[in-house]
Amino acid sequence: MYWLSGGFVFRKVISPFHRLDPRAKLLVSMEFFVLSLLSSTVVEVILILVAILLVATVAKSLRRIARTIAFSGLFAVFIFAINFLFGLGLLNALLYSVRFLAIISSTSVFFVTTSPDELEQIMKWMRVPRDVVFAFVTAVRFIPVVMLDAFQIMDAQKSRGLEFEKGNVLKRVRNLVPILIPLVVNSVIRSGELAEAMESRAYGSTPKPTSLYGMRLRWYDVAVAVPSLLLVSAVALVVVFHVTLYI
């Protein structure tokens, strides 16, 4: 479980991609997302997936993205099976399932390489209300903590003789109660404590607080953003508007 979740949790790595401005990273991720949607053949989607993996390699996060693909692979198989069984044909079924993998991987690249602080900066830049930004970023920040809690709770209940894998589906669902209740209770307690701690540290006392770190576009951000944007725009023009490009 921890192994799988790593595909969406930020990890501090020194890499050229990590050094990019978060807006440039978001742009690249969105471009892959859009390209995945625009692609109409299996070969195109596979090429996009390969490009994403290349970016992941540059970001020294290939193994993490591979985990995302491994986990999403189960759903991709399901998508393939459903589409194939409903008569969309082998190639279309394959296209939809690989497209799904490309979409998931493109978002994974963004989350693995963007710290919660950078996420906060982007949202503020997008003029998202401050409380919404704080709530979202805190939720992202707390994912690993809540997961750790869940594992510890599972261990505690297993130590009291609970066997999660035993019994029929109903019993297995019922077995989740001893995990979910402490997990929810702990999360509620933690959020209350966090709110008190934030208020004790003057959260909300100034309508427009200043930031210690700001975003600044540098030459390499532009060098990544502009050509990639031009490329995606060109593809979109060809695919959506059937514009013929004379290059």
Binding site: D149, Q152, I153, D155, A156, Q157, K158, S159, R160, G161, L162, E163, V177, P178, I181, P182, V185, N186, I189
Partner: peptide, 22 residues
């Protein structure tokens, strides 16, 4: 052997009680 089988012989009280009370 499974944790459930071993737990019959070995009882562990974890550090944080909130991790088990439900």
């Amino acid at each position: 052997t499974t944790t459930a089988t071993l737990s019959r012989k070995v009882g562990i009280a974890f550090q944080n009680p909130d991790h088990q009370l439900f």
